[in-house]
């Protein structure tokens, strides 16, 4: 490594550490998204709130240990009190028993949760009926299995998705803003008048962003592990080469943004136009698999899609290291094409 390259790299690291705004957008903001999404979508809040009146046999089963993950029970004194809780939206259903009949008052305003409550009560009644009929070994039983790892929750999708988002924002904004600022201040021209190799300027910036990306990855893994108990699957370590390839692709996009921006304001606006829709359509905030097919078609054209998909495959879906190969190739291809175009369009002043 030449002295110039080392000096440029040291400068890049120091400047980044001293730039509070850059640190906020590359580290804090993506982590804040992770915290917010993680807390909102917390698994425990997916329990259904129901009110239970009295102490009949069905009520006892509902309160039993088997259903404690599915229902959150509130005891109420009367049927009226239960109904009021349903109309107020505190619970989705109120359950009371009279002889052999189980009354369920439910709110249709939250159909998914109401259906879950009704289904659960129905299951309890069916089992009670079987027992009353003397059936001890049922003829049919259901064995439901989740295709992903047993512990897979929504947070396991957010960690790779938002990590991909953080990587894209850090690289696109970081490089575009720095280059436009350097061009505006005359620093790019000043550097041309020193004997440093142009290649060293590029290499120092690339090295800086690879270091930033690795730091982002470590931060996400630590927060995911220790705050949300995220369960990583076997080839999670492939996230490292994936993230590095993604960084190269997004640096090329940042370079392209800088080529088309004269002012910092323009660079920041264009960078937003590039990163934000890409985050929504690229599987950073929600799974694109649920979106209409034309959205999925667009999504297939976005580099972020390949990064988030690759990260999800190796980090939480339990795929082998090979699953990262195609995404990495696509990201490197993006880096070459976008970087090549930017090299032709970019102006030093």
């Amino acid at each position: 490594m030449s002295r110039s390259l080392r000096a440029l790299f040291v400068e890049a690291i120091k400047s980044t550490i001293r730039d509070k705004m850059a640190l906020f957008f590359t580290f804090l903001l993506p982590l804040m998204f992770l915290l917010i999404f993680g807390l909102i979508m917390d698994n425990s809040s997916s329990r259904t709130n129901v009110a239970v009146v009295g102490d009949g046999p069905v009520a006892r089963v509902l309160e039993g240990p088997e259903l404690k993950d599915a229902l959150k029970i509130t005891r109420v004194g009367s049927v009226e009190e239960g109904r009021k809780k349903v109309t107020d939206g505190d619970v989705v259903a109120s359950i009371s028993e009279a002889g052999g009949t189980v009354h369920v008052d439910y709110a249709a305003s939250d159909q998914t949760q109401a259906a879950q409550a009704l289904g659960t009560v129905n299951g309890v009644i069916a089992q009670a009926n079987l027992r009353a009929a003397g059936v001890t070994t049922p003829q049919f039983r259901m064995d439901a299995r989740q295709v992903e790892d047993d512990s897979l929750g929504i947070i396991e999708f957010f960690v790779p998705g938002l990590l991909g988002y953080g990587i894209s924002v850090g690289a696109v904004f970081g490089l575009a803003i720095a280059l436009v600022q350097w061009r505006r201040s005359g620093l790019l021209r000043r550097l041309q008048l020193t004997p440093i190799a142009t290649r060293d300027i590029a290499l120092a910036r690339i090295a800086l962003h690879l270091v930033i990306a690795l730091a982002q990855t470590v931060a996400f893994l630590l927060v995911g592990k220790y705050m949300f108990d995220v369960h990583l699957t076997g080839s999670w370590w492939m996230c490292v080469p994936l993230v590095l390839c993604g960084t190269l692709a997004f640096l090329a996009l940042g370079f392209l943004v800088a080529s088309f921006s004269r002012t910092q304001e323009a660079a920041s606006a264009i960078a937003n136009v590039v990163t934000l829709p890409m985050a929504f359509l690229g599987g950073a905030f929600f799974p694109v698999e649920m979106a209409p097919s034309w959205v999925q078609a667009i999504s297939k054209a976005l580099p972020l899609t390949y990064l988030t998909d690759g990260l999800k495959d190796v980090m939480v879906r339990g795929h082998g290291p090979g699953a990262a190969v195609v995404p990495m190739l696509v990201l490197l291809g993006t880096a070459l094409v976008a970087g090549g175009v930017a090299l032709r369009v970019f102006r030093w002043e």
Binding site: R3, S4, R6, A7, L8, V10, E11, K14, S15, R18, D19, Q181, S185, G186, L187, R189, R190, L193, T194, P195, I196
Partner: peptide
Amino acid sequence: LQASSFFEKLTAAEQIGTFAEF
């Protein structure tokens, strides 16, 4: 150059030190 063409976040000593390295 006339313009303040510097690495903005470096101190004066780091600035001239960086150029010296070049």
